[in-house]
């Protein structure tokens, strides 16, 4: 009989992985390549509105979308929350605010981090600007985060 004691429970580290690589295709790949080059691209829908980040299809009509257009690198916060204790996997390395940001020239907001001192510096409607990472590889974290406009 094994005694019912936690000291008898064998323990081993377990790392969950997704050990596949994927090609990102012309739309997602186009956006990520743009980030590497320091540009932000959005996807133009049939009704003329622009989604950023770009989807490969229109979420309402399901039409395929292939036209990418360059949009602005500053935008407006539409909602936010304060992430006071960065979680270990997050790429920001410091306390930050999560925010949905509608970039100039886009009609839909994207999720990213905003670097400010604390939640008192955040508000819906505030203007923020992209802060690029020095070394970029075609990844959403090529944008290090956003900073209040005028503080870049």
């Amino acid at each position: 009989m094994v005694e019912d004691s936690t000291s008898d429970v064998l323990r081993a580290p377990l790392t969950l992985e997704y050990p596949f690589t994927r090609t990102t295709g012309p739309v997602v790949g186009g956006f990520l390549t743009g980030l590497r080059e320091g540009m932000v691209l959005g996807a133009k829908r049939a009704d003329g509105t622009v989604m950023c980040p770009p989807l490969e299809y229109d979420p309402i009509t399901s039409d395929a979308i292939t036209e990418l257009v360059e949009i602005g690198q500053s935008g407006t916060v539409t909602t936010w929350t304060w992430n006071g204790e960065p979680r270990k996997q997050q790429p920001f390395g410091q306390p930050f605010a999560w925010a949905m940001i509608t970039l100039d020239g886009a009609d839909t907001p994207m999720l990213h981090g905003v670097f400010v001192e604390g939640p008192d510096d955040m508000s819906t409607g505030m203007r923020v600007t992209v802060q690029w990472r020095e070394e970029r590889e075609g990844h959403i974290a090529d944008i290090a985060g956003f900073v209040p406009e005028g503080q870049e």
Partner: peptide, 24 residues
């Protein structure tokens, strides 16, 4: 998996974004 998951927003943060919009 391309635009959001690599930033690791936890489930509470994602709901907090919606909560603020609902309140404001």
């Amino acid at each position: 998996p391309y635009y959001v998951a690599p930033l690791w927003p936890d489930a509470f943060a994602i709901e907090a974004l919606a909560a603020r919009q609902m309140i404001e």
